[in-house]
Design a binder for these strands. Structure first.
Length: 201
DNA sequence: CACTAGATTTTCT
DNA sequence: GAAAATCTAGTGG
């Protein structure tokens, strides 16, 4: 199952939260309409990126609050989902205290449970290709904008729990992917040699 | 293996 | 009107 995290866990500085999220378990549930039974669909976080408000021109929040990014300004622990490139969703963990405007993008998971549900949703069999990218995660776990604004400790649809302890020496730091501004900040964190990472560090 | 084009629509300028 | 925190299939070596 994994233990519950504390709300204080999410309030730390964004770069620290990013590292701390490695090894945590992201969980959604799929309800079967016939039986009413709920199946857990989950994975361990193996790659993240930090986005802050101050001086980070790649962050959605860098020019202040807008209708889209308002959840980034809520208290740490909220779920920020955005839609991009006309077809993809990405999921973030909001960090720091209310009013700050920072978050951590979840970029890759190592699948734990509900693999066959992920395979059906993704139209892909190879487990290595199910959740090795931010939009793939949302497709595999059924994450949409409907979950934007939920809280990872209180939501019934999406949660974060403890899973594995990741040693500092197993964490790799590198530049963020897919951005055109503030490209040189080394704010991507991943688990060394993990086969589910979206791209080698 | 590396690289590129094309899909598609929200969001903010 | 342009850009966007991406993905996939396709090409060529």
């Amino acid at each position: 199952m994994g233990k519950k995290l504390s709300s204080a866990f999410f309030l730390k500085p964004t770069l620290l939260l990013a590292e701390s999220l490695l090894g945590k378990k992201l969980i959604t549930w799929k309800k079967d309409k016939r039986t009413g039974r709920s199946t857990e669909v989950s994975g361990m976080i193996v790659e993240v990126e930090a986005y802050t408000q101050d001086g980070d021109m790649a962050s959605h929040s860098w020019r202040g609050k807008t209708p889209r990014n308002r959840v980034m300004f809520q208290a740490g622990g909220h779920c920020y989902v955005y839609f991009i490139y006309g077809m993809h969703h990405c999921i973030n963990v909001v960090s720091e205290s209310e009013g700050t405007g920072a978050a951590v993008l979840i970029r890759a998971l190592q699948p734990i449970s509900g693999l066959h549900i992920m395979q059906r949703r993704r139209h892909v069999k190879n487990p290595l290709l199910l959740t090795n990218g931010p939009a793939k995660i949302c497709q595999a776990l059924g994450i949409s904008k409907a979950m934007c604004g939920e809280h990872f400790l209180r939501s019934k649809r999406i949660q974060l729990r403890t899973f594995r302890k990741v040693k500092k020496s197993h964490i790799v730091r590198s530049k963020r992917i897919g951005i055109s501004r503030s490209q040189d900040l080394p704010w991507r964190f991943s688990i060394r040699n993990n086969p589910w990472v979206s791209r080698a560090a």
